[in-house]
Design a protein around this nucleic acid. Structure first.
Length: 551
RNA sequence: GCCCCCGUAGCUCAGUUGGAUAGAGCAGCGGUUUCCUAAACCGUUGGUCGGACGUUCGAGUCGUCUCGGGGGCACCA
């Protein structure tokens, strides 16, 4: 419809001699009284022409040649908006599309099968996933879903490092806990990982290998400990991710960049371009030459790379693997590293416009109106696993997604657990279940058959009530919500929209009985119910939340 | 000192990429069920969009400054 109007308005503009000076853009007005679509083309034109916007709007409106019966009214309003009003039948007719497309309704091909990578979580296997990782997992997976729904060819990727200092510390911590099982006074490293999970790994080692590690050389034993800890922790991480419905296509090991010489290649490339130099025994990246405020070390004087070098090399690999769109999802604590990495990749000749960095803010857990203090050292550290235990997977995913990514997220544990109307997850699921119940009832009354195929043949023009039409229009907006949400990488728009759908449905349900003696109208209303259920189900699927038949 | 995010109703947050009279949920107050799920619906109270200046037909949205909260500025990741 936008397409049709755009053509007509452009033709009108051309006939008035305004051709090419403005591209008419249409949007849905906030207020229903302002029509179904509106354009501000006249106001934009007024600026460059120095004329009265309302006068131009009137010119355009009278030059419009609309032959369709779908547009019932064109109005000039406010400072110079041109508002278009469509016939109710235009909307109700399109409702059948929802039923015929079913689980595909809302999908589009705006992504044009572009090879897309979404990198998220990327936690090193040094401990259990935190609540913050949980938010990232939910955001990443939902963005990946949205990109799939808009026709991208998506790879979900997890980047991790099982080498380096942190893992060394993990090995030493595990080794110490293992030794303590035989000798309680064995010293624990000062900056070791305190968590209980380390003790569990040690116990497991004891079960599997007895005391044999105590007799081994320290380095050899450490290597066994490292491997054991890594294996156990990664299993745990994957298990928790699976609990909230997140799976990855690729686990990319940072270490592979070392063993295949990729890091060296990048350093050589920087040298060749005159962007690397040595100072104080370290290798520096001339970041100042790339527009940043200070040069950065990429290889320490010890010979070890800093995190920047592998990150740059990794991103270079992303490009080399042929991704057209690269989405990185990071927590707010990583913001500072991004400019360096992007500048480095750009210096290597890659188009960093293809990299979209999504930075999410932190999560605070609230219990009984008080903030739950979380620190890795203390005992009240809440893991993602524990959070899922407490509130369930649907609530976890919903709560992590419902706020905009750039906002701090206040996670109210009491609310998430509450099985009542206050809980926004239940509100959506209830709407879906309620519709399922209506359809079951209609079936038991013999109004529709078990396969529900007759919904598609209902006479939708019978839908004339306000609350019916409000719902119809909202349902038809779903594909646009999906595509704009995907394009802007803002998954929170989906739950916001679904909440509106649920509200519109509940209102319709409250005002009008569905299963009524008038079989024609009953059929139309059942079709509307079916369409609403479909939109809710598809939306919930994008969010990775279950759509329930009963509650 | 510098960089990033946030500041909108008592609380938690939306706000269609600069549009028309700033919205929702919760909390408060008042209503709705002989009927397909009341985990629902309706009405109502509540605002200097942190503040100042600017950009323009038009600013919650953009720019500069400022105040407050959070995060970050290593040869840690």
């Amino acid at each position: 419809m936008k397409q049709y109007l755009a053509e007509k308005v452009e033709a009108a503009l051309a006939s008035l001699g305004y051709g090419g000076q403005v591209i008419p853009v249409f949007e849905r007005p906030k207020l229903e009284a302002h029509g179904d679509l509106t354009t501000n083309a006249a106001m934009i034109l007024a600026k460059s022409m120095g004329k009265n916007p309302r006068a131009i709007a009137r010119e355009i409106a009278s030059a419009l040649k609309l032959e369709r019966e779908d547009v019932v009214r064109v109005e000039i309003a406010g400072p110079g908006f041109i508002n278009f009003y469509f016939a109710d039948s235009f909307f109700t007719r399109k409702l059948s599309v929802i039923l015929s497309e079913g689980s595909r309704f809302g999908r589009s091909n705006t992504g044009q099968a572009r090879k897309t990578q979404v990198e998220f979580v990327s936690a090193n296997p040094t401990g259990p996933l935190s609540v913050g990782h949980g938010r990232q997992a939910a955001i990443g997976d939902t963005i990946a879903n949205l990109l799939e729904w808009t026709g991208h060819d998506v790879t979900r990727e997890y980047y991790y490092n099982n080498a380096g200092r942190q893992m060394r510390k993990l090995a030493e911590s595990t080794y110490a806990r293992y030794q303590q099982l035989f000798n309680a006074s064995y010293p624990f490293p000062e900056d070791g990982y305190q968590g209980e999970y380390i003790k569990e790994v040690a116990e497991r080692l004891k079960t599997e290998r007895g005391d044999r590690l105590t007799a081994m050389e320290r380095e050899a034993a450490l290597s066994v400990c490292k491997e054991a800890a890594e294996t156990v922790l990664f299993e745990e991480i994957k298990k928790v991710l699976a609990r909230i419905g997140v799976r990855f296509d690729v686990f990319f090991n940072e270490d592979s960049l070392y063993t295949t010489g990729k890091l060296q290649e990048v350093v050589e490339e920087f040298r060749r371009r005159g962007l690397a130099y040595e100072k104080d025994g370290a290798v520096w990246l001339k970041a100042t030459e790339l527009g940043l405020d200070q040069d950065r070390v990429i290889i320490k004087s010890t010979g070890e790379p800093t995190y920047r070098l592998p990150d740059i090399a990794y991103h270079r690999e992303k490009f080399r693997r042929g991704f057209d769109l690269i989405v990185d999802i990071f927590g707010a604590d990583h913001v500072a590293t991004i400019p360096d990495v992007l500048a480095g990749v750009k210096a290597l000749g890659y188009d960093t416009e293809k990299v979209k960095v999504v930075i999410h803010q932190f999560v605070t857990l609230m219990r009984d109106g008080e903030q739950v203090k979380m620190s890795k050292r203390s005992a009240n550290f809440v893991t993602l696993d524990e959070l899922i235990d407490e509130v369930g997977t649907d609530a976890v995913r919903f709560f992590f997604i419902m706020r905009s990514i750039s906002s701090h997220l206040e996670f109210d544990l009491n609310l998430a657990k509450e099985q009542s109307e206050k809980n926004p997850v239940y509100y959506l699921q209830y709407a879906h279940a309620r519709i399922a119940s209506i359809l079951r009832f209609a079936e038991s009354e013999g109004v529709i058959g078990p396969d529900r195929s007759m919904l598609a043949s209902a006479d939708l023009s019978l839908l004339k009530e306000t609350s019916e039409l409000v719902l119809v229009k909202l349902l038809l907006a779903f594909p646009e919500v999906v595509s704009s949400s995907a394009e802007s990488l803002e998954p929170h728009r989906v739950p916001t929209y679904l909440g509106e759908v649920a509200t519109a449905f509940h209102r319709f349900y409250h005002e009008h009985r569905v299963v009524i003696p008038d079989r024609g109208l009953a059929g139309a209303r059942l079709a509307l119910c079916g369409a609403a259920q479909r939109v809710l189900a598809n939306g919930l699927q994008i969010l990775g939340i279950s759509a329930r038949e009963k509650m």
